[in-house]
């Protein structure tokens, strides 16, 4: 059918019109993100073939049937072998699609599969609130001794912690893990360029990790309806090389000490 052609052409021109994934050249800016994109393209190919195939078949039977000059339609109640074929073939393809996704999902979410370096030294504790992101970094130089130590840090804020709203700075080309929680209603941490999304569920503290491959300033926004200001929970993720990252934290430490901020105060309307 005509409409199938339009749809396919639209998909083909979409990347060049910039109607495609966000990020430089529509490339993901994290390691898992790249693999998510690959899975997306794989499904896109399978789906496009199916889509075009079925629409053409549909167009064909419509066209043939419209000019059927026979006295009567072809009398048949179906075909056993066709049913078997179109049950088994799609089920094979579908099972393949499902099984093929498992690895990336496991790495993204199964805690025992998380990279060990990231798990040992989380970089931040992120709290979503109506309508801002509050970031808490451990004091620069603070090394966590054990998981118990991390749990304690998550439970009880420490004096040396650095607090800053709406900007999360992370080192590039290294696995980083942060803990995500909500202070009021449900939110979701969404960074389109990094292809990271995780709901911030009230009452839960959820570990999230990623590995930013390229230096850059990435978007952080909220993906779960959290009230009227949902659309403006705008923040950014700064991904910078390791040494700049250290410097960033030291500067932040100085700045916070200088201005005499106390722990809970920093707040901006952004």
């Amino acid at each position: 059918m005509f409409w199938a052609v339009v749809a396919v052409v639209l998909c083909l021109v979409a990347p060049s019109m910039n109607w495609w994934f966000p990020g430089n050249n529509a490339e993901a800016a994290s390691t898992l993100g790249t693999r998510i994109d690959d899975l997306f393209y794989l499904i896109l190919v399978i789906v496009t073939v199916t889509f075009v195939g079925t629409q053409i078949a549909l167009g064909y039977v419509l066209w043939k049937g419209a000019d059927n000059r026979d006295e009567k339609a072809h009398f048949t109640h179906g075909s056993h072998s066709l049913e078997v074929i179109w049950t088994i073939v799609p089920s094979g393809i579908l099972l393949f699609i499902a099984l093929y996704q498992m690895d990336v999902w496991a790495e993204y979410r199964v805690i025992s599969k998380f990279p060990a370096d990231a798990v040992a030294q989380p970089v931040a504790d992120v709290t979503a609130r109506q309508f801002e992101w509050r970031i808490r970094y451990p004091a620069p130089g603070r090394k966590f001794k054990s998981q118990a130590d991390i749990r304690k840090w998550l439970r009880v804020p420490e004096a040396g912690d650095l607090h800053y709203p709406n900007e999360l700075c992370v080192p590039t080309t290294r696995n980083v893990l942060f803990y995500l929680r909500s202070g009021d209603v449900q939110h979701a941490f969404f960074s389109p360029e990094l292809r990271v999304k995780q709901d911030a569920v009230p009452g839960k503290v959820i570990p999230v990790w990623f590995n930013a491959t390229k230096r850059g300033e990435y978007t952080l926004l909220c993906a779960e309806l959290c009230g009227w200001g949902h659309y403006k929970m705008k923040a950014r993720i700064l991904a910078v090389p390791e040494n700049e990252y250290r410097q960033y934290l030291l500067n932040l430490q100085k700045e916070l000490a200088d201005d005499g901020f106390d722990e809970d105060a920093p707040e901006s309307d952004e």
């Binding site: 998510i36 899975l39 997306f40 499902a98 993204y108 999304k197 993906a223």
Partner: peptide, 10 residues
């Protein structure tokens, strides 16, 4: 496909 849904959910 869960990994893809991480990105396109919501």
């Amino acid at each position: 496909a869960v990994p893809v849904d991480i990105y396109i959910h919501d």
